Simulated assay, not measured.
Amino acid sequence: MAGKNRGSVSLTQWLLIAAVIIVADQFTKILILGAFQLGDVHPVTSFFDLVRAHNYGAAFSFLHGASGWQRWFFLGLGLFAAGFIIWMLRRHGQQMLFAWALTLILGGALGNVIDRAIHGYVVDFIQVHAGGWYFPAFNVADSAITIGAILLILDELRRVRRS
């Protein structure tokens, strides 16, 4: 196959990995929705709780209190981002670290888009805290997006270092 690196991962394989992230995200959210009432808190360790929270906004509840327009804005933004990421994966899928970063972000973004489309909010359930300080609740999709963003930064640092 001309133009393809041996051992490179195809767009289909990247999309399958993103699908696994989406399934894991949605499965965990279904478990939380079935077992928890809104606001329930179940301590797991001294620094980690399982909770049920609904986020109508974006990261760190940005625009959580807006009048409802944010649902459609973030849903549209997530779909646009997914399309852009798929386009980038098609062009750069052979760049492993970069493609892993994009795939994690894609899976996470679509996991949260599904929540917005179905519920009107994102289901969050992971609560980390220490010494009275509480990090905003998050979910598997948010974790994938965060890890993907870290990988993007590492990829860029490697690229800058090489030049």
Rank of each mutant, 00 (worst) to 15 (best):
R6N: 14
V9G: 00
L15T: 01
I17N: 01
V20I: 14
A24V: 13
A24H: 01
Q26G: 03
K29G: 02
K29H: 02
K29L: 02
I30Q: 12
I30S: 04
I32G: 05
F36A: 01
L38G: 00
T45G: 09
S46P: 11
S46G: 10
V51G: 11
A53I: 15
H54I: 00
Y56I: 00
F60N: 02
F62G: 04
L63V: 05
H64E: 09
H64V: 00
S67Y: 06
W69C: 04
W72V: 08
L77N: 01
A81V: 13
A81D: 05
F84A: 15
L89K: 03
Q95R: 15
Q95K: 14
L97C: 07
F98Q: 03
A99N: 07
L104K: 08
I105Q: 11
G107Y: 04
G107D: 02
G107N: 04
G107Q: 02
N112H: 05
N112F: 05
V113L: 07
V113H: 04
I118M: 09
I126P: 03
V128K: 05
V128N: 10
F135L: 10
P136H: 08
P136W: 13
A137N: 08
S143W: 03
A144C: 10
A144I: 00
G148R: 04
I150Q: 05
L152M: 15
L152H: 09
I153S: 08
R158C: 11
S163H: 11
